[in-house]
Design a protein around this nucleic acid. Structure first.
Length: 668
RNA sequence: GCCGGAGUAGCUCAGUUGGUGAGAGCACGCGUCUCAUAAGCGCGGGGUCGGCGGUUCGAAUCCGCCCUCCGGCACCA
C-alpha cells in the first residue's frame, strides 16, 4: 500500500466560490477516491488562503473585523465541500496557529541557510490602486490600470535569493520530465527558467494582515511564501509534537499539487526554490488544468457569466455535474461549459446508456430470478459474446486505473462507457426476455449473471467519479461497497445467491430545456443553498430529484421523524403584508414587504399564480421567520411564506380568519 | 514583439514514429427488438483534414510562407 498525498490550491477568500474552485476540488476528490479504492494511504488536502492586502481592505470595507471577515468568507469555501461530496481529509486555513508556526519555521530555516536578505524594494507605486507597477507595464509614466500618475516609492523588504536556484531547477526539470504536467506548461516554465531568475520580494510593511516575519515583526510575509507553505503545515511541518513530525516524514513530499494553469509558476518555480533553499524534498508532480469557458469566453464577474455550480447541482443532481465536468474537460485544456452540453450528456450518457442499463439488468433478475443473483453455467461463460465482454473488462479496468493516475478523467470515463455500450449490446444479443419464455434456464441464468456482474464492475469503476451513483448501483445489486474495491476488480466476482436491492431510476430523463428548468427552479425553490447529499442512503428516492415537477413536493412521505427540539428550531410567526407586487419576468413570484412585529422585511413567495398582489395587502400570513436569506430572481428574500400546495394545484396561504393575531405571534 | 499551442463531418473532439478507401460521440434519417428511463441495438447521409507552395512512389501526419484563434513572457480555480 503506497502513500498518496494530494492537494488543491488553497482558495483566496476574496472571491466567491465558483465553478473553477469546484472543478479543481472535484478532480482532486475523484483522484483521491480512486487511490483509496486502490488501497493507498491517501491524504487529501484543501483549504483557504486568507492573508494579504486585498483581504485586509475588503474586511475594512465590510465593516467587520478582519478576523470575522475571514471566518465568514472562508466558511463559504468550506460549505462547498459537503455540497460537492468532497472527501478531503483536512481543511487548512492560513490563519490557523499551526500555519503560523510552519511558515515561520520555514522562514527561519531558509534564512539561516543564507537565502533571505534584507534590502530596499523600489518601484513605481500607484496610490489609487495601491500596487507596485513593474516598470515595463507603465504607460507613459502612468498606471496601466487607472491611468493615474505613479510615484517612485521605496520600501524595506526581505528578498529570497531565488536567482541561486536556476541551475538546480533546470537540472531537476531535466531529470524529472513528469514534474510539470501538461508538457506545454512545462515548456513555459523551462523558458522562464532559462531566461534567468530574479530574487523575489517576500515581505511587506505596507499592511499587517499576514504572518509576522520572525525577529522582525514590522514585516509580514508576502503572500506566496506563506500560502505555499500550507501544503507542509497540514502534514505536521513546524510542529514540536513528535507525532506531527512523524506525520511530516511520512507524507512529505506531496505526490501531486493539483492547480489551475494561472498559478503554475508559483508552484513549479517559486515553491521548489523555497524548498531547495530549505533543503526539503520537492513535490513529485505539479498538475495543472485548464479553465472553464462560458460560450468560449473566460468567466468573470464583470461579464456576469460566472457559473455557480449549485445551480446545476439543483437542476441535474450532483453526480451528473461531476460526470459532466470530468467527461467534458480534457485535462490541461480549456473547456466549454454550455447548458445544452450538460443536458445532452445527462440524457444520452447517464439516462439512456447507463441509468437504463442498470434498470434493465436488475429488473430482469427481479422478474425472472426472484431478485436473486443467478449462478452462471461455466461452459456457457466460454462462448463468444461472454468472452468478448470479459476481455473488454480485462482491458478497461487497468486502463481506467492508469488514466485516473494521470488525471485523464475524461478518457477514463470514455473507457467506462465502452463497457456500458458493450453491456447494452450483450443484452441485445442474448435477449434474456426470450430465454425467460422459451430458452434453457442455464442460458437465462448465465446471461443475467453476466449482465449483473458487468454492471457491478461498472458501478465500482464509477465510484470515484460519482460516489453516490456508484454506491446506489451497488445497492441495487445487493453488493456492499468495499473500501478497496479496485485492488482486485475483475469480471466474474459477483456472488450468485445474493439478494438484489430495489431497482430505482438513477438518472430520470430530463425532457425540459435548461432554460425551462432554470425558471422552474427560480420560482419554486426557496433556498439557493445547495443540498447536502445524503451519503450512502441506498434505498431512498433520488436524493437530488432532477425532475423539476417534484421540486415543490417531496417525492415520498418517508421523511424521518424529528424531535420537538428540531421543530422548535424553526420560528414560525405571523406577519402582516404591507405591500405586494409581481416580480418582473416571473410567472410565479410575488415580492412581499411584511411587518413581522419585530422588523419589516422583504419576502419573495411563489404564489403569483394563485393571488393578486392587491388582495394580499393588509392580510395576516404565516411565515418562516428565521430562514437564511436567499436570492430569487435577484431579490433577497428573508423568510418564506407558509402555503399548502397540493400536487398540480395552486398554493393556498395559511389563513387566520377575520380576527387575526398580531404580527410576530409564534405559530406552533 | 518573442516563445508555444490549436485550426479534421452541423456540434465537441480522436488521429503515436508519413502508407490498407479519413474516425468517435452527439445531432439528423431509416430499420429493428420490447427486458428497460419512448431507453437499447443495427444501418446511413455528410468532411477540398485553415490557405498556398514544397519534399516524397505516397502527407491530416514532414518543410516553408500566409490567415485565424488561444496561451506564456505580466494579477486571478
Amino acid at each position: 500500500m503506497s502513500r498518496f498525498f494530494i492537494t488543491t490550491p488553497i482558495y483566496y477568500i476574496n472571491a466567491e466560490p465558483h465553478l473553477g474552485h469546484a472543478y479543481t476540488t472535484m478532480v482532486a476528490d475523484a483522484v483521491a477516491r480512486a487511490h483509496r479504492l486502490m488501497g493507498d494511504d491517501v491524504f487529501f488536502l484543501t483549504g483557504t488562503d486568507e492573508h494579504g492586502q486585498k483581504v485586509e481592505r475588503a474586511a475594512q470595507k465590510s465593516g467587520e473585523g478582519t478576523v470575522a471577515f475571514a471566518d465568514r468568507t472562508a466558511q463559504k469555501f468550506r460549505d462547498l465541500l459537503p455540497a460537492l461530496n468532497i472527501s478531503n481529509d483536512d481543511f487548512i486555513r492560513t490563519t490557523e496557529p499551526r500555519h503560523f508556526a510552519a511558515s515561520q519555521a520555514l522562514w527561519r530555516l531558509v534564512r539561516d541557510r543564507g537565502f533571505i536578505y534584507k534590502d530596499r524594494y523600489q518601484g513605481w507605486y500607484c496610490t489609487v490602486d495601491e500596487v507596485f507597477v513593474p516598470e515595463k507595464q507603465l504607460v507613459e509614466g502612468r498606471c496601466p490600470l487607472c491611468n493615474s500618475v505613479v510615484e517612485k516609492l521605496e520600501e524595506e523588504s526581505y528578498f529570497f535569493r531565488m536567482s541561486a536556484f536556476q541551475q538546480t531547477l533546470l537540472a531537476h526539470y531535466r531529470q524529472h520530465p513528469e514534474f510539470v504536467t501538461p508538457d506545454h506548461r512545462r515548456n513555459e516554465m523551462l523558458a522562464f527558467l532559462e531566461a534567468g531568475l530574479d530574487d523575489l520580494s517576500i515581505s511587506r510593511t505596507s499592511f499587517t494582515w499576514g504572518i509576522p516575519v520572525p525577529d522582525d515583526p514590522a514585516h509580514v510575509m508576502y503572500v506566496w511564501f506563506d500560502a505555499l507553505t500550507n501544503y507542509m503545515t497540514a502534514v505536521g511541518y513546524g510542529s514540536d509534537a513528535p507525532e506531527q513530525q512523524q506525520r511530516f516524514a511520512h507524507y512529505w513530499p506531496a505526490d501531486v499539487h493539483l492547480i489551475g494553469k494561472e498559478i503554475v509558476r508559483q508552484h513549479a518555480i517559486y515553491w521548489p526554490a523555497f524548498l531547495l533553499a530549505a533543503g526539503l524534498p520537492l513535490p513529485k508532480r505539479i498538475m495543472s488544468h485548464g479553465w472553464w469557458l462560458m460560450e468560449g469566453a473566460k468567466m468573470s464577474k464583470s461579464k456576469g457569466n460566472v457559473v455557480r455550480p449549485q445551480d446545476y447541482v439543483q437542476h441535474f443532481g450532483l453526480d451528473a455535474v461531476r460526470y459532466f465536468v470530468f467527461r467534458e474537460m480534457v485535462f490541461g485544456q480549456d473547456a466549454n461549459f454550455a447548458d445544452d452540453a450538460i443536458l445532452t450528456r445527462y440524457n444520452a450518457d447517464l439516462a439512456n446508456d447507463f441509468g437504463n442499463l442498470a434498470s434493465r439488468a436488475t429488473t430482469m433478475i427481479h422478474r425472472s430470478c426472484g431478485g436473486v443473483v443467478p449462478a452462471p453455467d461455466a461452459a456457457l461463460l466460454e462462448r463468444e459474446p461472454e468472452r468478448a465482454l470479459r476481455s473488454t473488462l480485462d482491458r478497461v479496468v487497468p486502463a481506467v486505473r492508469a488514466l485516473v493516475e494521470e488525471f485523464q478523467l475524461s478518457a477514463a470515463l470514455r473507457e467506462i462507457w465502452e463497457v456500458v455500450a458493450a453491456s447494452n449490446r450483450y443484452i441485445v444479443v442474448r435477449e434474456p426476455w426470450k430465454l425467460a419464455k422459451s430458452g434453457s434456464a442455464q442460458e437465462l441464468h448465465t446471461a443475467l449473471f453476466v449482465a449483473a456482474d458487468t454492471l457491478r464492475v461498472i458501478a465500482e469503476l464509477l465510484r470515484p467519479f460519482m460516489p453516490d451513483t456508484g454506491e446506489r448501483t451497488l445497492a441495487m445489486l445487493g453488493v456492499t461497497p468495499s473500501a478497496t474495491a479496485w485492488v482486485d476488480l475483475r469480471a466474474g466476482t459477483l456472488a450468485p445467491g445474493g439478494t438484489l436491492g430495489t431497482t430505482v431510476p438513477l438518472f430520470p430523463r430530463i425532457e425540459h430545456s435548461v432554460e425551462e428548468l432554470r425558471l422552474m427552479a427560480d420560482d419554486t425553490t426557496q433556498g439557493a443553498v445547495p443540498q447536502t447529499p445524503a451519503p450512502s442512503a441506498p434505498a431512498q428516492a433520488p436524493a437530488h430529484a432532477p425532475a423539476p415537477a417534484q421540486a415543490a413536493i417531496p417525492a415520498t412521505t418517508e421523511a424521518p421523524k424529528i424531535a420537538i427540539d428540531d421543530f422548535m428550531k424553526v420560528e414560525l410567526r405571523t406577519a402582516k403584508v404591507l405591500t405586494a407586487e409581481r416580480v418582473p419576468k416571473s410567472s410565479k413570484l410575488l415580492k412581499l414587504f411584511v411587518d413581522t412585529g419585530i422588523d419589516q422585511r422583504t419576502i419573495v413567495a411563489g404564489i403569483a399564480e394563485a393571488y393578486e398582489p392587491e388582495s394580499l395587502v393588509g392580510r395576516t400570513i404565516g411565515i418562516v421567520f428565521n430562514l437564511k436569506p436567499a436570492k430569487l430572481m435577484g431579490i433577497e428574500s428573508n423568510g418564506m411564506v407558509l402555503a399548502a400546495s397540493a400536487e398540480g394545484q395552486k398554493p393556498i396561504l395559511i389563513s387566520f380568519g377575520d380576527n387575526p393575531p398580531p404580527p410576530g405571534s409564534r405559530i406552533r
